[in-house]
Design a protein around this nucleic acid. Structure first.
Lengths: 200, 200, 200, 200
DNA sequence: AATGAATGAGCGTTCATTCAT
DNA sequence: AATGAATGAACGCTCATTCAT
């Protein structure tokens, strides 16, 4: 497999620590250790910390959010798209539960906003069209009290929250990691019904 | 006022940086600077970083989550309690949007689990009773496809998500800080209706 | 004495290593060690390496070269000024033999030219007037084959060379450090006579 | 041509960076890059940095200083020899202006004194004889106030100084690189007259 | 109570050097 | 002979913490 190359090993380790284990401030030496390589080799391949950030973040954002925008922009029935997007986003979050936390945490450091520039600009472009589409659905189905903005925030919230809060909620509910993943997985259909108001 | 004491100034600054501004890894010197005092004085009052963490975290957890448990344990009609809790949690998050992110981020460092010990144990005790109460409500109102666990996760998710993701979502929706706060505020009633399935 | 303050100790050590011992690339830890203090304290007082460079270099340049410009700009007889300047520059070089080497070495790294900006601009302004003064002297005394530019380069060369090359020349001439300093000191009058062409 | 061999390419690059461009602390990677070869190949041919130093330094010292000793030891009229030596040393310095700076800089690091051992021992042997020859010339021509030691230091100083200080002096005099080289070149005859006291 | 000064541990990064091919 | 990959040692710098006053 091509996965064995040091570049990929490093990127996998970085993603695992940043996005999967939630070590938002993982040290270079931790990443190197996780990848089973020397600290200096990390710089040999990725120059510096920021560069490694940008690369793994871009890949992860493309796979999850940009892909979600793409799914929701397809020319298929609205309800189908929503279901598909919910499945996609939950599948992604099951792999990288802390990706949103990481992005937010980086943003709050207020350094190079460039990191999320693509995500924001792509997202705005996408939203402009999509909010209208939601509005049509809301009116057509006479869904009360919910704005298009609420609709999309609700959808994301219901998907993402149990992942980003996993360390606490899993514990509170007294579930094993496996059981908790099943719990989150089952929510796919529940969330779809809830946001589309198909409560029968 | 008691607020002027250095202890309180420091705690306020720590909470502001950690929970309000989302600087999850704020440096001691930043906190001292924000409080307008000397870096060494910080250690004089709070010994070390971890100790400061514990103290401000305990206070914040008591004010938000323990208080929420308390509200939801009161002996008043279920729907009233839910509405009250939603108001409470959103009010708290409006002040400290990143408190959950902070807790999770600290937990992922896997050091002293003691930090959230009280939150977890209190929470488990509370949940044991409350999940049954939800179950009763679900059956009584014939709400389909939703488990008690879903019910509470949904409630929290719909409240918390727009706060923890504020830096992105506010930007994506093209709202000012003020407009975004109003947007979140308005969600109170929407969320109440949604989780209680009062869609009329 | 005020010399005992850590700032001054550090600056003295930096000057000693850079300008006196000729360790043009002295490490921060060497300077700290020479000053008898902690490595981190160096940054406490001088922020970073470049800042320390700038400060000690500016002080040394002001004391030696800017002062020389000042002496040679005084309104006293030409021959007196030359004699005075030669004494001044040799006295300075006796303390910091490698100051010129340091400046050149830094310049060749081609980073912040700002370091020597003041020296250059002050020097140009000074030279414009002074070259004319030399020209008058050359013509008045009918000194043959020497341009004003040669005159000043010769003067500096005769003073500076034995200092910048001390480690070799002292050894070649088989002199102790003390003897070599006396040798250089004695050159003051010889150089004065030579550049002024007073060979009687 | 033999010049194309990697060894020679590397040596040329090292000399260019060390002696011509004045990058006294040029990195191995800069030398390799300048030579258009791999960083590892540099070690293949020259083992380590110190070894490369020794080799290029020995070659340069032989070409300039040992050769100068040789010229000044020839059995021809004193004044002829001086003139010839001045021409030789200035020609050498025009190619490698910073060779003396490099030697001194290395010496000040106080590691292997072996580097300049040959230069020193050859020089001492040469000087022993030559100082007497100068002394004879001084007495024969009744040159006042100048010792044989001064004589030779003056000669070297007047030749070398404008080269080692080129980055500053060229700038101060407001000359282009070409103009400055001509300026230094013209000094040959002036220096010859000055040290031999032929001021007519 | 309050502060400037001081320190040790650690982090990101560079660099000469070596290894494997 | 030649090169990409890999490593250990060191360097500049930061930061939490302590000391002295």
């Amino acid at each position: 497999m091509k996965e064995e190359s040091p570049e990929n090993l490093i990127k996998q380790s970085a993603k695992r620590l940043f996005f999967a284990k939630g070590l938002l401030n993982a040290k270079m030496h931790e990443i190197a250790q996780d990848a089973g390589i020397n600290r200096a080799l990390l710089h040999y391949y990725f120059r510096n910390r920021d560069n490694l950030f940008q690369i793994v973040l871009k890949e992860a954002v493309d796979e999850t959010f940009i892909r979600m925008f793409s799914i929701l922009s397809e020319d298929i029935p609205f309800e189908k798209k929503i279901e598909s997007a919910i499945h996609h986003i939950i599948n992604c979050l099951a792999e990288y539960p802390f990706i949103e936390s990481f992005i937010i945490s980086e943003l709050n450091k207020e350094q190079d906003q460039n990191l999320t520039q693509p995500l924001i600009s792509e997202g705005k472009k996408f939203l402009k069209k999509f909010l209208k589409e939601i509005d049509n659905y809301i009116k057509a189905n006479k869904i009360p009290h919910i704005t298009p903005e609420d609709f999309i925030v609700n959808m994301m919230a219901l998907c993402a929250y149990p992942y980003s809060t996993m360390p606490i909620v899993q514990n509170l509910l007294g579930l094993t990691e496996k059981e908790y993943n099943i719990f989150c997985e089952k929510r796919k259909t529940m969330i779809t019904r809830l946001v589309l108001m198909k409560n029968k």
